[in-house]
Amino acid sequence: MTTALIILIGTIVTYVIYRASKVVYKKWPLPFFHPLLLCPLILIAIIQLSSLQPSDYALSSSLWTHMLGPATVAFAIPIYKHAPLLRKNITIILTSIAAGTLVAIGSSLLLSLVLHFNGDLLISILPRSITTPIAIEVSKTIGGLPTLTTVFVIVTGVIGGIIGPYVIRLMALKSPVARGLALGMGAHGVGTNKAMEYGEQEGTFSTIGMIMAAGMTLVWAGLLIPSLLQITIL
């Protein structure tokens, strides 16, 4: 088979199963049926039952992975549309995301130590709550394994997309700014996708939260994480 044909088939199959997963989740909104859990599980089952290699599937679905880039660019649209709203809430945004990024790194580090994780695993898990491309950069900076970090980022997204609504209810988060920032900080793009279901304002705050979280984590990776690791690992 030619590469073009492989990509055509992979693109269509992935899309059809994704659409079907969305329909299922809409009808039965159970955590287990979350599209980012159900759709990959079906695809994994297909790959395991056939003679396909995971690398064959990665190639065949590369068009969709590529779209993450342009999708990130498209986040400029909600930011542009709601610029005045963001300017008005800039203090809340900066303070909350500073708290969020520090809690993300701190809690990952502490829990890793409690569970006796060490070396590559511990370092690679620290940037897990930010968007994939920047998490990879941070992982490289602090000496982790970028591929392992990618796995943790995806797992964080899936878990965050599922528990986000429960956190919002449990913490009685009523304002769009609190809901959006919590989702964007805790579960990057997947959380932002959820936030857009709440409303356009929530989606915008989530987008900005996601971007700020990535930016601040880059800064912490340079200033804070190296000394933190030195204190805790040595």
């Binding site: 203090t91 303070t95 990952s108």
Partner: peptide, 30 residues
């Protein structure tokens, strides 16, 4: 087993991160 522990770590940490961020924002907003 370590995979399961990792899953648990991510679950707990993500919960704390969302709660802390949302709590801070909600307080400041009010």
């Amino acid at each position: 087993w370590q995979g399961l522990e990792t899953l648990l770590l991510i679950l707990v940490s993500t919960f704390i991160v969302m709660a802390a961020t949302g709590f801070t924002a909600e307080r400041l907003y009010r």
